[in-house]
Protein backbone atom coordinates (compact mmCIF):
# COMPACT_ATOMS: atom_id res chain seq x y z
CA UNK A 1 0.00 0.00 0.00
CA UNK A 2 1.22 3.49 -0.81
CA UNK A 3 1.66 5.80 2.20
CA UNK A 4 0.69 9.44 1.88
CA UNK A 5 3.38 11.72 3.23
CA UNK A 6 3.36 15.48 3.74
CA UNK A 7 6.61 17.45 3.85
CA UNK A 8 6.27 20.96 5.27
CA UNK A 9 9.27 23.29 5.00
CA UNK A 10 9.69 26.84 3.72
CA UNK A 11 12.92 25.91 1.94
CA UNK A 12 12.64 24.30 -1.46
CA UNK A 13 16.03 22.66 -0.98
CA UNK A 14 15.07 21.28 2.42
CA UNK A 15 11.85 19.82 0.97
CA UNK A 16 13.82 18.07 -1.76
CA UNK A 17 16.46 16.83 0.69
CA UNK A 18 13.74 15.44 2.92
CA UNK A 19 12.00 13.67 0.04
CA UNK A 20 15.31 12.15 -1.05
CA UNK A 21 16.00 10.93 2.50
CA UNK A 22 12.85 8.78 2.62
CA UNK A 23 13.61 5.04 2.66
CA UNK A 24 14.00 3.57 -0.83
CA UNK A 25 11.77 0.58 -0.16
CA UNK A 26 8.88 2.66 1.17
CA UNK A 27 6.15 3.21 -1.42
CA UNK A 28 5.03 6.79 -0.87
CA UNK A 29 3.09 9.58 -2.45
CA UNK A 30 4.72 12.85 -1.34
CA UNK A 31 2.95 16.21 -1.08
CA UNK A 32 4.75 19.45 -0.21
CA UNK A 33 3.67 22.47 1.84
CA UNK A 34 5.60 25.75 2.19
CA UNK A 35 4.33 26.67 5.65
CA UNK A 36 2.04 25.49 8.42
CA UNK A 37 -1.12 27.09 7.11
CA UNK A 38 -0.75 25.36 3.76
CA UNK A 39 -0.10 22.10 5.61
CA UNK A 40 -3.21 22.42 7.77
CA UNK A 41 -5.39 23.03 4.70
CA UNK A 42 -3.89 20.00 2.96
CA UNK A 43 -4.33 17.80 6.03
CA UNK A 44 -7.99 18.76 6.26
CA UNK A 45 -8.61 18.04 2.58
CA UNK A 46 -6.63 14.82 2.27
CA UNK A 47 -5.65 12.02 4.56
CA UNK A 48 -1.95 11.81 5.30
CA UNK A 49 -0.25 9.20 7.37
CA UNK A 50 2.86 11.15 8.32
CA UNK A 51 4.06 14.75 8.17
CA UNK A 52 7.68 15.89 8.32
CA UNK A 53 7.46 19.38 9.80
CA UNK A 54 10.08 22.15 9.93
CA UNK A 55 9.97 24.64 12.85
CA UNK A 56 11.22 27.98 11.55
CA UNK A 57 8.82 29.08 8.82
CA UNK A 58 6.95 32.22 7.80
CA UNK A 59 3.14 32.56 8.03
CA UNK A 60 2.69 29.67 10.47
CA UNK A 61 5.71 28.08 12.13
CA UNK A 62 6.08 24.50 13.29
CA UNK A 63 5.01 25.14 16.88
CA UNK A 64 1.82 26.89 15.77
CA UNK A 65 1.15 24.09 13.31
CA UNK A 66 1.40 21.47 16.06
CA UNK A 67 -0.97 23.50 18.24
CA UNK A 68 -3.44 23.80 15.39
CA UNK A 69 -3.31 20.06 14.68
CA UNK A 70 -4.05 19.37 18.32
CA UNK A 71 -6.79 21.99 18.56
CA UNK A 72 -8.56 20.62 15.49
CA UNK A 73 -7.77 17.04 16.47
CA UNK A 74 -6.37 16.24 13.02
CA UNK A 75 -5.37 12.61 12.52
CA UNK A 76 -1.72 12.72 11.46
CA UNK A 77 1.61 11.59 12.90
CA UNK A 78 4.08 14.46 13.01
CA UNK A 79 7.85 14.13 12.94
CA UNK A 80 9.61 17.45 13.49
CA UNK A 81 12.67 18.02 11.29
CA UNK A 82 14.66 21.06 12.34
CA UNK A 83 18.03 22.74 12.64
CA UNK A 84 16.96 24.07 16.03
CA UNK A 85 18.68 21.42 18.11
CA UNK A 86 18.26 23.08 21.51
CA UNK A 87 17.02 20.51 24.05
CA UNK A 88 14.21 22.93 24.90
CA UNK A 89 12.95 22.89 21.29
CA UNK A 90 12.83 19.09 21.29
CA UNK A 91 10.93 19.01 24.58
CA UNK A 92 8.46 21.60 23.40
CA UNK A 93 7.53 19.87 20.18
CA UNK A 94 7.07 16.56 21.96
CA UNK A 95 4.79 18.23 24.48
CA UNK A 96 2.83 19.65 21.56
CA UNK A 97 2.28 16.17 20.19
CA UNK A 98 5.13 15.51 17.76
CA UNK A 99 6.15 11.87 17.98
CA UNK A 100 9.85 12.54 17.45
CA UNK A 101 12.52 15.06 16.55
CA UNK A 102 14.97 14.68 13.66
CA UNK A 103 18.01 16.95 13.33
CA UNK A 104 18.83 18.71 10.08
CA UNK A 105 20.58 18.01 7.79
CA UNK A 106 18.54 14.82 7.42
CA UNK A 107 20.01 11.46 6.50
CA UNK A 108 18.27 8.38 5.24
CA UNK A 109 19.55 6.06 7.99
CA UNK A 110 18.10 8.22 10.77
CA UNK A 111 14.76 8.68 8.97
CA UNK A 112 14.50 4.94 8.34
CA UNK A 113 15.32 4.18 11.99
CA UNK A 114 12.65 6.56 13.29
CA UNK A 115 9.98 5.31 10.86
CA UNK A 116 10.78 1.71 11.80
CA UNK A 117 10.77 2.50 15.52
CA UNK A 118 7.22 3.84 15.34
CA UNK A 119 6.02 0.99 13.12
CA UNK A 120 5.31 3.35 10.24
CA UNK A 121 7.39 1.14 7.98
CA UNK A 122 8.35 -2.50 8.36
CA UNK A 123 11.92 -3.77 8.55
CA UNK A 124 13.87 -3.25 5.35
CA UNK A 125 13.43 -6.19 2.97
CA UNK A 126 16.51 -8.34 2.48
CA UNK A 127 18.39 -7.30 -0.59
Amino acid sequence: MVSKVLICDDSNMARKQMARALPDHWPVEVTFAKHGQEAIELIKAHEFEVMFLDLTMPVMDGYETLEEIRKQDLPIMVLVVSGDIQPEAQERVKKLGAIDFIKKPVDQARITAVLTEYGIIGEAPNE
Binding site: P58, S82, G83, I85, Q86
Partner: peptide
Protein backbone atom coordinates in the same frame (compact mmCIF):
# COMPACT_ATOMS: atom_id res chain seq x y z
CA UNK B 1 19.23 30.29 3.91
CA UNK B 2 18.84 26.60 4.67
CA UNK B 3 22.56 26.09 5.29
CA UNK B 4 22.50 29.08 7.64
CA UNK B 5 19.41 27.73 9.32
CA UNK B 6 21.23 24.54 10.27
CA UNK B 7 24.42 26.39 11.28
CA UNK B 8 22.66 28.95 13.46
CA UNK B 9 20.73 26.15 15.14
CA UNK B 10 24.05 24.71 16.28
CA UNK B 11 25.22 28.13 17.46
CA UNK B 12 21.98 28.73 19.34
CA UNK B 13 22.29 25.36 21.00
CA UNK B 14 25.77 26.25 22.28
CA UNK B 15 24.57 29.63 23.56
CA UNK B 16 21.50 28.07 25.14
CA UNK B 17 23.72 25.66 27.06
CA UNK B 18 26.18 28.40 28.08
CA UNK B 19 23.48 30.71 29.41
CA UNK B 20 20.82 28.18 30.38
CA UNK B 21 18.17 29.80 28.20
CA UNK B 22 16.07 29.21 25.10
CA UNK B 23 17.26 31.08 22.03
CA UNK B 24 14.54 32.13 19.60
CA UNK B 25 15.65 31.39 16.05
CA UNK B 26 14.58 33.67 13.23
CA UNK B 27 14.51 33.03 9.48
Amino acid sequence: QEITNVAMGKAADRLARLLGVYVVLPI
